[in-house]
Amino acid sequence: MSVLSLSHVSLSYGQPSGTAALPVLKDVTLSLSRGDFVSVIGRSGSGKTSLMNLAAGFLRPTAGQVSIDGRPVTGPGPDRAVVFQDDALFPWRSVVDNVALPLKLAGKPRAEREATARHWLQAVDLAGQEGKHIWQLSGGQRQRVGIARALASGPDFLLMDEPLGALDAMTRDRMHELLLKLWDESHTGALLITHSVEEALFLSTSVVVLAPGPGRISFQEDYDYGRRFIRGEDPRALKSEPGFIAARERLLAAIYEKEAA
């Protein structure tokens, strides 16, 4: 059981000399086990994306530690796959070759990477689109290719930075159900950065609210709507439960807390 943990992590941007460092995150402690689905929400400027960049290893914390099973994270690695807000696909490769790239970089033989890529494309409902060019796909399809590519590398953790932000509402709803299915099948620990309260609430086993200036955890609560959906409950029924609506109000209150100040 792998655990990705951030312990007492602080982050500041700015040159060591000259201008005063700009604090972005302050004393954030968070842990993500395989099988968890943790969402991070907060207003813009609360350091959500910085948090993900720390978990991915793109940034190093100014203080505190990011570690996996006690080993400190020193950079990005194949155990933590990232899904980017802009799909970050490679337009010079076909759909299937995009998904197969992590396996190619890992030195897997051609037949194996082809088979794995096809498997994950099928899992994201893109069977039959393997040979297409990236620019022939819609925004939702591109994000699914990005998710398939992330999962193809067989990661322990799936880190997603507002992957659905640019999609329309109906596409998002379908993507939520797909994400839950993939999370369940891949047994990854998912970390989702989002600005949608409903999305966070429906998908996550735990939602973390970041308060801005500098970003710190102001609220955290555990939920089971995603797991109940996987067990076969109807998503619309789940989202209209009194408990769901009350939880949404608690989260919204936490996000907009002290906004007047």
């Binding site: 194949p78 990232v82 790239l101």
Partner: peptide, 21 residues
Amino acid sequence: NENQIRAARTFGATRAQLIRE
């Protein structure tokens, strides 16, 4: 694109792979 490079780095790309791919 910065994120394309980051994506390749999360797949464990070496410096040579990053340049080539």
